[in-house]
Simulated scan of single mutants.
Amino acid sequence: MNTPPPPHTAARRIRAAALASALCLLVSGCSVLGAAGDGPDAGGGADGGMKVTLVTHGGKGDAFWDLVRKGAEAAAAKDGVDLTYAGDADPAAQADLVRDAVRDGADGIAVTLAKPAAMRGPVAQAKAAGIPVVGLNSGIDAWRPTGLLEYFGQDESVAGRAVGDKLDGLKAKHALCVVHERGNVALEARCAGVRMAFGGETDNLYVDGTDPDAVTATIASRLRQDSSIDEVVTNGAQFALSAVEAVRRSGSRAKVATFDIDKDLVEAIRDGEVQFAVDQQPYLQGYLAVDALWLYRTNGNVSGGGTAPVLTGPAFVTRSNVSAVARFAAAGTR
């Protein structure tokens, strides 16, 4: 004997069926509910809810990606989405995670494009399976050629140029731009933007972002070698704190600025140890990516019209305005 489904489950199925029927009336030739395709539909996990997978290039223990994940989880909770989060800094492994999501029958996939070439094949597989894919955080110049539906993030070149202009305003002369992941298109674009706009000299310094002690030691060594460096620009909040320590160890008089913030970085700005940070709002990126997939599946919405990115930054956080974001940072959402 079959047990009748709970009332709320039955109601959900009725609503989903009604929506699908209404869509069929609007679409010529629609004959099979739930047929494969890249158009919007209600999606469906085992309980009738959407299944969304978020795949990033973030490594374990990185506070930045914790913020992205929290935003995604908040949107999933609001929308009744079954969310799976996965991340791997290795581009081949990240690509495999996207393929896993396709095999698992995800209703939507959100992905970062730190190494765009590695994502082209998996994204094509997702599209062939009728799974919409949106981008976030990295790959603003690659999301459309890669075939993504929407993109949420910061224009890193614009952000870098804004930092360059700010350094000019601070009368800096020689900037060291610290790249913690070689080949990451977003980080490279930031430093290129700084170099483009900054009137002084800009050098890139490549460090191993997986080894905090090595990051500090490498920056300190470079500062000892070149006393003309008066500004260290890092590409992550934790690396800014490493740079602060490196300045102390080396006896340098260089100032520190950074892209991205977290609660510890907020305190460093308050204390005057870091001049400013560029906030791209990672929580918002995660939230918008998941919510966008839900809106597309349930209502056919496409943010930016599918042609323009939705920008989440840049915004400058300085000692003069840090109190405005401090309580949100303390709560782990900024």
Score class of each variant (00 low, 15 high):
332 G>N: 03
89 A>Q: 05
189 A>S: 09
275 Q>F: 14
204 N>L: 14
263 K>H: 13
238 Q>L: 15
211 D>Y: 08
176 L>Y: 03
174 H>S: 13
325 V>L: 07
221 S>M: 15
13 R>P: 00
35 A>V: 08
64 F>R: 02
284 L>V: 10
279 D>A: 12
14 I>F: 15
158 V>C: 05
322 V>L: 02
35 A>Q: 09
102 V>D: 09
316 F>M: 10
263 K>N: 13
253 R>D: 08
128 A>D: 04
239 F>A: 03
26 L>Q: 11
295 L>D: 13
192 A>Q: 12
57 H>I: 11
227 S>Q: 15
220 A>Q: 00
116 P>F: 09
210 T>V: 15
150 E>I: 06
265 L>F: 05
257 A>L: 05
302 V>S: 03
320 S>D: 10
300 G>V: 15
295 L>P: 01
331 A>D: 10
70 K>I: 03
132 P>F: 01
62 D>E: 11
143 W>G: 00
236 G>A: 12
173 K>N: 12
32 V>H: 11
122 P>V: 01
317 V>N: 03
238 Q>C: 04
8 H>P: 06
204 N>H: 12
239 F>G: 01
178 V>D: 00
234 T>E: 05
20 A>S: 13
110 A>V: 04
205 L>I: 13
252 S>Q: 04
88 D>E: 13
84 T>M: 06
68 V>P: 02
16 A>L: 12
20 A>Q: 10
159 A>T: 05
224 R>V: 11
176 L>E: 00
27 V>H: 14
332 G>Q: 07
205 L>R: 07
247 V>D: 00
310 V>Q: 14
124 A>F: 14
185 V>H: 06
277 A>V: 02
111 V>H: 05
115 K>D: 15
314 P>Y: 04
166 K>P: 04
